[in-house]
Design a binder for these strands. Structure first.
Length: 362
DNA sequence: TACATTTGGATTGT
DNA sequence: TCATGAATCCAAATGTA
């Protein structure tokens, strides 16, 4: 039987949660911001509600710019841990609507795929009923809305859910998939961002239809084998990837801005320590050890550099993390004269803790 | 030489 | 001074059998 996949996308999630928690926000423009450490409104917009969007406020926009677009908007700082809790509740509802526990894939804090092939017996009418039921259940239990897309694979489902927003539902049967994508600008395709869009544009490709018709060998020569083939397939509406539970992320990182661009060691290392505290907290919560440590510096000219090290064996030791991260950060200070703007630290190559130290630790 | 791992930059999307 | 932050992907460099 041909697959039937649902993609659920929570509408303006962070801002919607804030509205739910504080009814006085209803009817107002709400902007949830990631504030950096730099002054009153340094930082970028994480999410805004649709009223704010009407004023031209968008994700990733500098908060300052957002404020100039609508000085009366309500600006709130992100409360990520709280949103994670709400997300967990929502995901539970969604998972319970998939064919099975395993036919579910959370792809971000506010999006998930559900395989419902069995539940609807391959029938799209039934699938739509399931989609509507999910929307109702989320609205009733969590008092926030979502947009739903239904299609023969994850790509089409994902594209469908973003077609009508907010609080929408879009069903694209297998026979409609190609026609649905064809007229779209390539930038709209899930996985194509600014850089790829520009490269494609240079090749004279601006719509999905043109991309689908393009010679795959030429795409490969520009984008490499994997991406070249993916572009061709995606533009044709083909996506065979299964809905599959995501294994926990295989890296844990934190990054933040300095109060101002600087090469002051106290400032840099004290921020680094804070970031490592956060990383270690996650490491402990996840009960993992790590074998690689990476530090990132974003310079005042926005150039980004990273250094990483792989240790001889996995550890979950704060001091070892600190020592390695500090050494690499010092190298950056030696190598460059440019001021630092932001710094980050990350661990990866994660291993489940066995609960006891391995012999290698001694 | 072929394969595996490490490293660092590039990309996405918020 | 307008400019967040997390994660993944990918290719080149390096290591190993």
């Amino acid at each position: 039987m041909e697959r039937v996949i649902i993609h659920v996308d929570m509408d303006y999630f962070y801002a919607a949660i804030e509205e739910r928690e504080d009814p006085s926000l209803k009817g107002k423009a709400v902007v949830v911001c990631m504030y950096s450490n730099r002054g009153e409104s340094g930082g970028a917009v994480s999410t805004s509600n649709y009223i704010a969007r009407e004023a031209g406020i968008r994700s990733a926009m500098p908060c300052k710019l957002a404020r100039s677009k609508d000085p009366d908007a309500v600006f709130l700082p992100v409360r990520k841990p709280f949103y994670e809790d709400v997300s967990a509740n929502v995901m539970e509802i969604l998972r319970s609507n998939a064919d099975s526990e395993e036919a579910f894939e959370k792809i971000s804090i506010d999006e998930a795929f559900l395989d419902i092939t069995e539940s609807c017996k391959g029938d799209y009418e039934t699938a739509k009923e399931i989609g509507l039921r999910i929307k109702e259940e989320v609205k009733e239990k969590e008092r926030i809305t979502c947009s739903v897309g239904i299609g023969p694979n994850k790509l089409i489902a994902k594209m469908a859910s973003s077609f009508r927003k907010p609080d929408g539902i879009t069903v694209i049967g297998p026979e409609d998939a190609e026609g649905f994508l064809k007229p779209m600008p390539v930038k709209k395709l899930w996985g194509i961002g600014k850089v790829t869009e520009d490269k494609l544009s240079e090749m004279g490709i601006s719509t999905v239809e043109e991309l689908a018709a393009f010679d795959v060998m030429e795409l490969i020569s520009t984008f490499g084998k994997n991406k070249g083939m993916w572009l061709k397939q995606a533009a044709s509406g083909i996506d065979d990837s299964p809905v599959k539970e995501r294994t926990a992320t295989d890296q844990i990182g934190r990054m933040a801005s300095l109060k101002h661009d600087s090469r002051n060691e106290n400032m840099i290392f004290s921020l680094l320590e804070e970031l490592m505290d956060d990383v270690m907290e996650k490491v402990r919560t996840r009960k993992v050890s790590f074998r690689s440590v990476t530090v990132t510096v974003i310079f005042s000219n926005f150039k980004t550099s990273t250094k990483s090290r792989t240790l001889n064996h996995a550890v979950n030791d704060r001091d070892i993390l600190s020592q390695n991260a500090r050494e690499m950060m010092s190298q950056f200070l030696e190598e460059s004269e440019i001021n630092f703007r932001r710094i980050g630290v990350r661990v990866d190559n994660l291993h489940e803790n066995t609960g006891q130290k391995s012999l290698f630790d001694f």
